[in-house]
Computed example of a mutant assay.
Amino acid sequence: MSLTKHSILITGAGGGLGGTAALALAKRGAQIILLDKSIPKLEKIYDAIIATNAPTPAIYPFDLAGATEVQYHELANTIEEKYGHLDGLLHSATELDAFTPMSIHGTMAWGHTLNVNLNAVFLLTQVLLPLLQKAEHASIVVTSDSFVREARAYAGAYGVSKIAVESYAKILAEELSDAGKIRVNILIPGPVNSPLRNKAFPAEVKNKLPEMVEIIPAYLYLFSPQSIGTTGQIVDARTFKL
């Protein structure tokens, strides 16, 4: 399943799932654009990719919550200058403050969570669509969460953002389906032993959870030519098999 000469941007690339996806896709030959607000985390995954003799990735420090629209366009211009087009976009960055009752939910935490989990997905996708349309075929993957796919008490801004971003992805998939060049799908990683899961459920017994590498087949499928023609779908990594 070669991804040679495929350029793929991954948000939250310094995190658990984003880093796992970046390393797996790079090993298949993809040129990865690592985007995260933490430079030390970016450097760590950069070094891990280099150690595998995969194509040298690009590092792009970027604060999804605080970036201006101008900065989003600057990012798109930088990618166009270096790669000319974009074959894939993985929205993996996720913000989870805490599970909180709506009655006492902090307004700053609310706004920050929606900025990262929803508004940034919209803004980044919009500025990168022209580059994705230049590819022969391109894949956009939005990451959701099995825990909050339906309304749950105390899910707060995190739950609202994940429900909303799924709807956004389905709407976008419908809008792009006629052209047949860009597919948009939703990935449900399921409960895995990730930093986000550890934060959300600190008392959980983690050694009973699947490891992050177990969802790699879903990433490979969604960004490979095998998924061409599949759009507007929900891919559950817990049940997915190549």
Rank of each mutant, 00 (worst) to 15 (best):
L129I: 06
T68L: 08
L118N: 01
A151L: 14
K44A: 09
F122L: 11
E95A: 05
K44E: 11
V121A: 01
G111V: 15
G84F: 05
R149Y: 02
F62Y: 11
L118F: 11
A151R: 15
P130G: 08
L128E: 02
V148Q: 12
V141S: 05
L86Y: 00
M102N: 13
A76S: 10
V70M: 12
S92T: 06
H112C: 05
A67H: 05
Q126F: 04
G84L: 09
S144F: 04
I140S: 04
A54F: 01
A48I: 14
S139P: 03
R149D: 15
L128C: 09
A135H: 00
A153Y: 13
G88P: 01
A93W: 05
G88A: 01
Q126K: 06
G156F: 11
K162F: 11
P61G: 00
Q133N: 13
V141N: 03
G66S: 11
M102W: 15
Y154S: 05
R149V: 15
K162N: 12
P55V: 07
V142K: 01
G88H: 00
L42T: 10
N77G: 10
L123G: 01
Y72W: 07
V70D: 05
D145V: 05
H91F: 07
A65S: 10
L90E: 03
R149K: 13
V142I: 14
A157T: 09
E69P: 09
T56I: 12
V127C: 07
S146Q: 10
A151F: 04
F122H: 07
V127G: 05
L124E: 05
A155C: 12
L132N: 06
Y154M: 09
L114I: 14
T125A: 02
W110E: 09
P55Y: 00
